[in-house]
């Protein structure tokens, strides 16, 4: 499998609006095909190292279903090719591209652009 450290940029839908790239942690700190949570001020961001697809994703750590700070601990995977995360509590799944809830009618989650440069993971914020 391709080493994720060599990946330079992963562009998410609105990465053009990014005002600030936050250097979160080393790419190797994130488990393969899994996530970990990043603290950014008061915000908690779930970051996923989808190493099988050589892709990185980030979204809010908060699950809108029962307002639990847990999405980073969810299992990631795909449905018809679309990357998603399943909340560990009640298995509501959310698209990592659009943030939309895929198997229920929950509110959408916010997704953030991620890039990996020189072995470091950066998350893009608009402010």
């Amino acid at each position: 499998m391709e080493s994720t450290n060599d990946l330079t940029t992963y562009t998410s839908p609105n990465s053009t609006d990014v005002a600030h790239w936050y250097r979160a942690a080393r790419a190797t700190d994130f488990p393969e095909n899994g996530g970990a949570c990043v603290k950014y001020g008061d915000k908690q961001i779930a970051v996923f190292n989808f190493s099988r697809r050589a892709e990185w994703y980030a979204c809010q750590n908060l699950c809108p279903h029962k307002m639990q700070m847990v999405l980073a601990r969810g299992i990631i995977g795909t449905t018809a090719g679309e990357a998603k995360v399943a909340c560990p509590f009640h298995k509501k799944t959310f698209s990592l591209h659009t943030g939309q809830c895929l198997n229920a009618e929950e509110e959408s989650i916010t997704v953030y652009p991620v890039k990996v440069v020189d072995g470091f993971v950066y998350i893009g914020f608009t402010a």
Partner: peptide, 30 residues
């Protein structure tokens, strides 16, 4: 096919554990 999901990952994890009884923490994210 594809990249797995929250249904097959734990199911396979359980099979691997049932068959080999190795420490499951080593494949934590499934």
């Amino acid at each position: 096919i594809g990249d797995g999901c929250e249904i097959c990952k734990p199911a396979v994890a359980s099979l691997l554990a049932s068959i080999w009884n190795e420490v499951i923490a080593e494949q934590a994210t499934i």
